[in-house]
Simulated assay, not measured.
Amino acid sequence: MSRILYTKPSITALEIEFVTDAITHGWGDDCYGYIQRFEKEFAQYVGTSKAIATASCTGALHLGLAALGIGPGDEVILADTNWVASLAPILYLGATPIFVDVLPDTWCLDPAQVEQAITAKTKAIIAVHLYGNLCDMDRLLALSQSTGIPLIEDAAEAVGSVWHGHHAGSMGRFGVFSFHGTKTLSTGEGGIFVTHDDALYDRVLTLSNHGRAANQPKQFWPDLLGYKYKMSNLQAALGCAQLQRVDELVARKREILHYYRQAFAHIPAISMNPEPVGTQNGAWMPTLVVSQEAGITTDQMRAAFQAQAVDARVFFHPLSTLPFIQQTPQPTSLSLAERGLNLPSYHDMTTADLNKIVQIVYGLFS
């Protein structure tokens, strides 16, 4: 039985050509060529003035929070439904994560609960565009403006998602993206920091390279203690090739999500990634959530998929339930984790692959 993976990157001759060129020629004076090109072209794509390519999205978020001066005694608000990568940099810096619940339809940060959670110690709000779904940016940006608290966009999963003409990641104080091998646009591993804030950009650029300032004339001289979070030239070459195909990559992801949506439209107990009027869902990870009344759990769905050699991912567990946190989980976040499932979605899936997945889901309701 041929196995259907939940996701994998789309690699063509173009990517191989770019990486081969980087391996052959990207050394010495040209060792940053693809990095600089990737940063410039990605910033243009999402509509920001600056970008810094990093070793991971986690690293990009860590750098941004550190550049804002966040540390011990500070609080950072984020949704309980998230991957640990959104939480870890807060803990690295000694700050305190404050978990709030998500909305039941978008599975993203609830602005009303964010407002209630703000204290004098709140130094940032992290809005994660989960699975390509978009947070309510109008309400969150208004809240950020009225309080002066920076709004950060974790757009790790949201390449191609657009909020009323603005790309995810381009609207907050800064945004971060992931290019892990599972993502729509991939560099194997890697991430990027984007912003319109020149001063913040300069600070992050210094922190990302062992604390060495770009304008420091003294060779091998760190002005402050920084990190080693730079992306490699080889990874950036792959990213440059993927960027040339980004519209095609996003369109195929959206096509797969639309296929699932249409197939499950006749099952009222299933809801999927939303796409409110005026927005575009980048559709990184098509996800279904079964109503509580249906009584079908995530574990039951995964077992049915595994029996047919089909991969599927669980909905993210509430961060509050992790062993190094152990807090009371937010109710909607906990409920979604018990009845949600990420469906397979990669660019060269066949119609037969998609139909097999649809049949498995229908079998759960028969």
Rank of each mutant, 00 (worst) to 15 (best):
V176E: 08
G190L: 06
T206G: 04
L205H: 00
K183Q: 14
K218R: 15
Y201F: 06
T184S: 15
F220G: 13
H164S: 04
W221L: 11
S186C: 10
N209D: 11
T187F: 04
H167P: 13
L205E: 01
Q216G: 08
S170A: 13
G169Y: 05
T187Q: 14
T184E: 08
L185H: 05
T187E: 01
Q219C: 08
V162K: 02
V204H: 00
F220M: 12
F179N: 04
G181A: 15
H180S: 10
V176D: 12
S186M: 10
F177D: 01
M171Q: 15
H180Y: 11
E189I: 14
G175K: 06
R212Q: 12
G165S: 08
A213T: 13
S170I: 11
G181I: 11
E189F: 06
R203V: 04
F220K: 08
S208W: 07
L207N: 02
H167S: 11
E189K: 10
H180C: 15
P217N: 00
G165A: 10
G190P: 13
G165N: 10
R173L: 14
H210P: 14
V194Q: 05
N215T: 05
F193C: 02
A214M: 05
S208R: 15
H180E: 15
Y201T: 02
T184G: 10
G191W: 04
D197H: 03
G175E: 01
H166D: 14
D197A: 00
N209V: 03
D198S: 14
D197L: 06
R212L: 09
G181F: 09
D198A: 12
N215C: 05
T187N: 05
G175T: 07
T184H: 13
H196D: 09
G191H: 00
H210C: 15
H166E: 10
G169H: 06
D202H: 12
V194W: 13
F179L: 08
K218M: 14
F220I: 09
I192W: 01
F179R: 02
H180D: 09
G211W: 01
G211A: 02
G181N: 13
A168C: 11
A168T: 06
G191N: 04
A199D: 11
H210F: 15
A168K: 00
T182Y: 11
D197F: 03
L205K: 01
P217C: 11
L185D: 06
D197S: 02
S170C: 10
A213W: 01
K218T: 14
V162A: 03
A199M: 05
T195E: 11
M171N: 06
G188S: 11
H166N: 10
F193Q: 00
W221A: 14
Q216N: 11
G191Y: 02
G172W: 00
A213G: 00
H164M: 12
P217M: 10
L207D: 05
A214G: 04
F193Y: 01
